[in-house]
Write a protein that binds this DNA or RNA. Structure first.
Lengths: 247, 247
DNA sequence: AAATAATGTGTGTAATTTACACATTCTAAA
DNA sequence: TTTAGAATGTGTAAATTACACACATTATTT
């Protein structure tokens, strides 16, 4: 046995020891992973970072981090979001926990997936790390993500598709003022299907939380559409009436 | 530097490396808590155990346990269910993770809540621990649960109310063969509202996964109703057609 | 000035949900 | 044995909601 081999063996044993110790205390690492959606150029996008972990070197992964001992689960997700995008006060909601034993190559890590919707045009948004990039959701079909992030992403995307039909989340992806066409493009991108323009319009107006700003689109090569904004207060009132099943 | 020191340094370095990826200082306990529903005497019930923890001595709490290091999250929930009720092959689904820093008095414990639906009349069911009892869901309004289990229960109950209207889960709470009246009583108990008998019947028949067993109720003090069973195969086929958003 | 392209609006039809009543079958009591 | 009671089993009309669809308007560009 060469010294090198011996050392490797010791290292191996130490790692084993660490695992045993962790076992004895029943403690494990817990992380949050954020599926951060954005909407740009009529395309639904998701923010990914290139993994620096050996096993998944170069593969794209969700933005995540370990949860700190004195940090709420939600707070950890907010922290990741803030650190990575500079944004705060944005839509963020827990989707599901993923806890397979072997989901992480470096050891036992249970992760909690969050879904976030941000407005790409918001001036707050600044992505400092140049390993982080926007990817169109469509293009993910052809990409292999690191860890089990493909499954996590799929779960969150389907969750969003369902959720967006029951609650008005979409607005979080748009600028404060938006045209109905933009809103419809967004919904078509999320649901991945064409919608009837007239029925779409009717539906949203009947929900009665779109407010006409009096302004119109500018610099569009056609008749400009009216700009609306989402009235959160009205919505909150309605929500109570709806007896919303909401967790 | 002696070989031993060198080795130690390498071990140290390896651990550091590992820590950077999975910081051992960031580890914490993870538990599962099961909200186990049953249906008996036309009442929706939930299984609770009297806490033996000092702070919550005597208070009722959900059935839960720490997740073991070599155990999947789902497996841990199944284990709790099996150990406490003797039942296997039952409906169990993750609902949400709860991770407030101070939610557990004994230290940091992140818990993942599961919802389970079991048939109280199943012969498998055996509750050995005499600290475990069924409680009607209605009566929980007047009880103070230990930990944050009130919140967890509320979340799971609302989740169930919503879920049961989108997917046929209810059958898991009933015996294999059941009358439509029993089914309706169940739904009325879960949703906590009266339903129209004719429309209820129409709706379920139109979904086309109720099978007439040819048998009838026995020992009822009135005209006996037909007994039906739920056809899982038919349902599975339908589910695909529905393009079910299901995680 | 005309062509183009998108906005803005309304109506009829189909599908679904809701409300509602009466005859039937069994049990239990007279 | 008869009768009263109570729950099962079934159909239809009204109301609401979802869907399909067409044309006039307003701005831009040629």
């Amino acid at each position: 046995m060469t010294p090198k081999m011996k050392m490797a063996a010791t290292v191996e044993k130490t790692l084993k020891g660490l695992q045993t110790e962790v076992q004895s205390t029943n403690k494990m690492a817990i992380s949050v992973d954020c599926v951060i959606f954005g909407f740009d150029e009529n395309t639904l996008k998701v923010l990914l970072i290139r993994s620096d972990l050996k096993k998944y070197k170069g593969k794209w992964t969700l933005l995540g981090d370990l949860v700190k001992p004195d940090e709420d689960l939600d707070a950890a997700a907010y922290r990741v979001l803030k650190q990575r995008t500079g944004m705060k006060d944005v839509y963020l909601e827990q989707v599901k926990a993923f806890g397979e034993v072997d989901r992480h190559p470096a050891g036992r890590v249970v992760t909690v997936a969050y879904c976030s919707l941000i407005n790409i045009q918001n001036h707050q948004l600044q992505i400092l790390d140049n390993e982080i990039h926007w990817h169109s959701v469509d293009s993910l079909k052809d990409k292999e993500l690191g860890f089990d992030h493909e499954r996590i992403f799929d779960t969150c995307y389907r969750w969003l598709q369902k959720r967006v039909q029951e609650h008005p989340l979409g607005f979080n992806l748009l600028p404060k003022k938006f045209s109905l066409r933009e809103l419809q493009n967004l919904y078509e991108a999320i649901l991945s299907k064409k919608l009837d323009r007239r029925n779409f319009r009717k539906k949203f107006f009947s929900m009665d939380f779109l407010v006409d700003t009096g302004e119109e689109e500018r610099d569009v090569p056609h008749r400009p559409g009216k700009l609306y904004k989402f009235d959160f207060e009205k919505y909150e009132k309605k929500k109570k009436v709806w007896a919303g099943i909401d967790f």
